[in-house]
Each structure stands twice: as C-alpha cells, then as structure tokens.
Design a protein around this nucleic acid. Structure first.
Lengths: 123, 123
DNA sequence: CGCGTTGTCAACCATGTGGTTGAACAAGGT
DNA sequence: ACCTTGTTCAACCACATGGTTGACAACGCG
C-alpha cells in the first residue's frame, strides 16, 4: 500500500480521521484542539495526524510550542480524478448502445487488452 | 469502521481492488476472469471481492456455475459527496475575505460550535 | 453417473493498525 | 534555571487484513 492514492483512501477510511479533516476545512487547529472532542488519548490523535500527514492531506508548522495542523485540500483532487474517471466510464455502460458495443468487444477479445486504465497489476 | 463510507474508502485503499473496480467499469467479469492478471491465488481474489461487496461497490449474481461480478457505480456518489463538500469548504478559506472572516470567528469562538459537519465524534 | 470447472469456506500465518501507558523532548514564561 | 504546556516516541496489546493451502459445494457436460 505504498502509493499516495492508497494512503489517501486508507487515511479517510477512519471516521475519526474524516472528522478531523472535516474540522480542518473550517480552520487550522493545534493537536490538543483537535483531540478535544474525541474520547481517546492525545497520543492516539497524534498517530492519526501522522497518517493524514503521510497521505499528504495535512501539513504541520511550528508556532511557539504548538504545531498547528493545516489541511492540504489539493490532495482531494487525486481521489476525485480517480473516482470521476471510472464513474463516468461506468455510467457510459448504462447507455444502451455502449452496453451492446462493450459486450461485442468482450466476446471478440476476452483478454481485455483494451485500456483506459492507469494502474498496473500492482498489489 | 462500521459505516459504509469507511468501508468504501477502505476497499479502495488497495491497488489490486482499485484495479478490479477499474476493469469492472468496462464490463462485468467472472472471478477467474478478474483474477487472471494478478499474481495471487483465486481465494485471495475472492476475498478482495468480498470486501468490495461489503462496501456495496459490487454485486454478484449467479449464472450457471459462474458468479458474474457487477459494479455498482452509485456508491461512488457517497464518496464524491463527502469529498466535494469539504473540498469546497476548504477552497472557500483561500479566498481572502473568507479567510479573514474565518480567523475572526475563530478568535471570538474557540470552541468550534460552528457546524456544517454531519459525522459525530465517532471512532 | 462421474468429472472437470468455478468459486467459496476454514484454518493458519505474518504484518499492519488503533488503542493504551509512561517517558522524553521542545519552547516559552517567570 | 525551572516549571508548564504541547507534542511526540517507545513498548506493548488486541484485533483486522492480505496472503497462503486444503477441502468441498454447485453446476453443466460427456
């Protein structure tokens, strides 16, 4: 799970982390600040932040002894790009003509060489 | 990690599963079919499909001894809705005026009672 | 009927993840 | 210098995840 897209999806697969991101869209926050609403230790929150940071969703600067956390919203584009691409493609299959063509193509060429995909065979 | 949104994000955090989804946007596939390109056992692929199914990304019907896998693209909306909501909110902060207002609000009311969020405190 | 094809279930293993507590480090304020 | 505040590091634990192999269920075909 080494690529950034995977890290971003994984980071947002946790409700606590999603809530943190949600709150960070409103304003930057310190770690303590962020931790307040959750019933877990400060260290746990620190770990969550590390995950978000490694996914590129968040950056931390220094300001006195505080480490304000800032959301890097551009990373969202990475996901939306991926999602939108395949959503559009999937939707296209629902139009009658495309469905027929796809099925015909599939029978001629079962080794799906056709491609609009980016990712390799990865795991 | 019980809610669907979490399951969807988690499901797509794996490159192999993302690639499966990508291929399923082109056409339905059987399990063997899907497994072909990857260098893992059929059982491993079966497990991946279970994850995708539990996330609601995929459904399986029965057709003789085959179990064709079909993509349910509507679930993508769940993600795009979440992402777009916060992305827009985050982008809004970059407009000069909004940034100033947000900062003023932040100073008056440090207990972020403000809200546009949906999710609770969850974990 | 018996057999191959297609796919799942179960048990197991290694590694990752989210949580804990306790100690340590960093930067001011006094 | 020292205490306080803010944050991270380290060790540990329980459980989830992704992979394996082996058994077996479901179905169509000869």
């Amino acid at each position: 799970m080494t690529d950034q897209l995977s890290r971003v999806f994984a980071a947002l697969a946790d409700p606590t982390r999603r809530d943190m991101v949600a709150r960070l869209t409103e304003a930057d926050h310190t770690v303590n600040d962020l931790a307040a609403p959750y019933d877990v230790s400060l260290q746990a929150v620190s770990k969550h932040l590390k995950v978000l940071e490694e996914a590129g969703l968040v950056t931390r600067s220094r300001e006195a002894q505080r480490r304000p956390v800032h959301l890097e919203a551009e990373v969202f584009d990475l996901m939306t790009k991926w999602i939108e691409r395949y959503r559009r493609q999937a939707e296209a299959r629902y139009t009658a003509l495309d469905a027929v063509l796809a099925r015909m193509q599939d029978e001629e060429d079962p080794t799906h060489t056709s491609d609009t995909r980016t990712e390799g065979t990865a795991s």
